[in-house]
């Protein structure tokens, strides 16, 4: 059902945990539907220097969270805003069709974290 890459990121998720001194936090999803992702980012000179996540959800949701934090690290904020559901799924060698929408919330949560950071800068 899941690709080897999804299983790897699900079984050994990268960047798990809370980030008490985060510069931006984004939460997406709803536990009633099944998946909730909380993404924390650390930003320096317009670049994401660190990213962490906490996720309530299925295997796909956890793998997506792990992947999105891996991808975002080192990116500029504008680059990170270009991460999409499709590019995340591609990086994971695909997701089952029924998981594309409800579990693939990583890009949205990351974008919210960036928005949160930018709002705090104003």
């Amino acid at each position: 059902m899941y690709s080897a890459k999804v299983m790897d990121h699900f079984s050994n998720p990268r960047n798990v945990g809370e980030m008490p001194d985060a510069d931006g936090i984004g939460t997406e999803g709803n536990p009633v539907c099944g998946d909730v992702m909380k993404i924390y980012i650390k930003v320096k000179d317009n670049k994401i220097t660190d990213a962490k996540f906490q996720t309530f959800g299925c295997g796909a949701a956890i793998a997506v969270s792990s992947m999105v934090t891996e991808m975002a690290k080192g990116m500029t904020l504008d680059e990170a805003l270009k991460i999409t559901k499709a590019s995340l799924a591609e990086a994971l060698d695909g997701l089952p069709p029924q998981k594309m929408h409800c579990s693939n919330l990583g890009a949205d949560a990351l974008h919210k974290a960036i928005e949160d950071y930018r709002n705090k800068q104003k």
């Binding site: 009633v32 539907c33 956890i62 929408h101």
Partner: peptide
């Protein structure tokens, strides 16, 4: 639970309804 944002409880989730497109 180490991965979950709710490890300390369901704060902020009570009464929410699922509106996501499935």
């Amino acid at each position: 639970r180490e991965i979950s944002p709710y490890a300390k409880g369901w704060e902020g989730t009570e009464g929410s309804a699922c509106t996501a497109q499935k």
